[in-house]
Design a protein around this nucleic acid. Sequence first.
DNA 1: GCTACAGCACAAAACGTTTTAGTAAAAGGT
DNA 2: ACCTTTTACTAAAACGTTTTGTGCTGTAGC
Lengths: 336, 336
Amino acid sequence: MARATIRDVAREAGVSVTTVSHALNGKGTASEATRQRVLAVADRLAYRAHPMARGLRRGRTGVLALDMRPLDAIGSYLPVGVDYFVRFAGAAAVTALDHGLGLMLVPDMTRADVPQAAHGVDGYVIGDPLRDDTVLTRLLSAAVPVVTVGRDPGRPGFTDWVGPDDTVETERMLDLLAARGARDIALLAGTDDNAWNVDSERAYRAWARRRRMPARVLHVPEAAGEEGGLDAARRLLTGKRRRPDAIYCQTGRHAAGVLAEARRLEVAVPGDLLLAAGSDAQQTRLAQPAITALDLAPEETGRAAVELLIARLNGDETPGPVVVPAQLHVRASTAR
Amino acid sequence: MARATIRDVAREAGVSVTTVSHALNGKGTASEATRQRVLAVADRLAYRAHPMARGLRRGRTGVLALDMRPLDAIGSYLPVGVDYFVRFAGAAAVTALDHGLGLMLVPDMTRADVPQAAHGVDGYVIGDPLRDDTVLTRLLSAAVPVVTVGRDPGRPGFTDWVGPDDTVETERMLDLLAARGARDIALLAGTDDNAWNVDSERAYRAWARRRRMPARVLHVPEAAGEEGGLDAARRLLTGKRRRPDAIYCQTGRHAAGVLAEARRLEVAVPGDLLLAAGSDAQQTRLAQPAITALDLAPEETGRAAVELLIARLNGDETPGPVVVPAQLHVRASTAR
DNA sequence: GCTACAGCACAAAACGTTTTAGTAAAAGGT
DNA sequence: ACCTTTTACTAAAACGTTTTGTGCTGTAGC
């Protein structure tokens, strides 16, 4: 048996399809009696408006797209950690659903072949855009509503983004390390040209200058993971230059690598070296000792991103960005 | 400027919309010259068929839904590990895209409120169905094409699933443990009533009977995570009954908990106790010592699930299931 | 008794496609 | 020369909604 259409409901209730549509959407001027009758019939027939038909007419799909760039680089890396994505996507999907919308995964808009359905969505959430992000450019020029997670470093005028205040969070972490006795903190940043890396490094340098502390920054590709952290740690801990007394890694995986290498070199953490990470991950929680880290609040961020996007779709122009504060998990790796 | 419609292309190319549609879809009998002209114009106008309009007419959405039940229980648990989901969803999304389809995240179909767009998808992928799964029942009765990851233990007739042969994989792991000297292997299973738990436990008991070894099964909720593994390990390692010389945990998180507790109790792994996990996760890879585990091949599985679903959508009735072999990662926790 | 207006319901148009059912001209067969 | 088939193309119907515009009825105001 095929699904019931609005015509079935109209026939059964003895009214026109217009009236059914109005009754169901609370639009027209129908008498309370008719409205109730229609509602009852619709309920009995388990009628739901065909999403395509409604979408076609309304010009709205009822679907949002989520483009976390790393998704297509399966198996390689996720900058902020693998569980970040799950928690983010989950919260985003639930939030969308709460508004009656679906959330579609779009691996990569830059691919040559055409993502059929991807062109029909109402709006986009783009995770961690790179400087002058190509996908963002394309969407903006097509006037598609879009919200990013973290700002585009090359697009200061674009404020429809959601995320942490990287400057504040970086300073918070550095202050903690300083309070725990660190006087020479090295920064291990990623190589992706996104706001997270850019703003954190800037904040780090400014902070060091203010405190008259040395600034040393190593860039390690996010994709290098633990291995990358290992290598960097070897350079920092065995090089000619004086050993830093603290290392702040942007990613949890790098931090885990640093910790492993420190153990191998018999540099005690936290005794000889304080260690902290700019994003929480299973690696930081499970490490021995556990690594102090910033929890970037993926659920909060996912929810905020979808809600900002929906606000835009509804014509709400409340200006962005939406800053989602991170939470600082102080763990054994920075014990005094 | 609004997006180009088929009418624009028709006008510009000096033909009817029918001809445009035919030329673009390779359907009718158009002369090669006309076809080329239409194609050129369509390309110049960057025309793409409006997904909704096409979907409405064709009765196809171009979107598949992915319902991994745990998604709505954010922050609580994912049975097979958090990175399994990302890799699975990523591969599934890419595969769908390769076929011109989108992949929509649907947190939970059992929710009371109506997932608007969720009713318009062409087919469903359901992760790890429980016995007589309610979502599965509803979809099947609505004649919606659906593929599950792992079978529904209460529905032996339903063969449209993709996943490992749990019996074979369990035996493989137990054989390994036995070969490494284990004579008393305990099983730490989950409590979810899905095929993975059911079939693995059955295989374990049969194997133990054949080998005339004792069988001991502890059930720990998947959601209990490392904590659950900790508790179970305490019971197994300090109880009155003789200590097992190997523990096989279904989930990687449980295994990580067992390992932590073993260390606390000064039970050496692998010296005094062999440890293995039925699913690979960051916990198993990063643990010290690293834990031997079955890699359930999430990418393979995600791809296979989407491809089986698409085959069904296209009327291909090649019978299921599609067995995806797991890969056994032998690590330090089972060294001789 | 006429006008104005609110209340209620509906027919028809529109959304952008694909598919069906054609038509006219050209080609082929006798 | 006539019928049939093929080729090349098209108008219109259909998909299932929402929205626009219109008509009818009854009541209030004068």
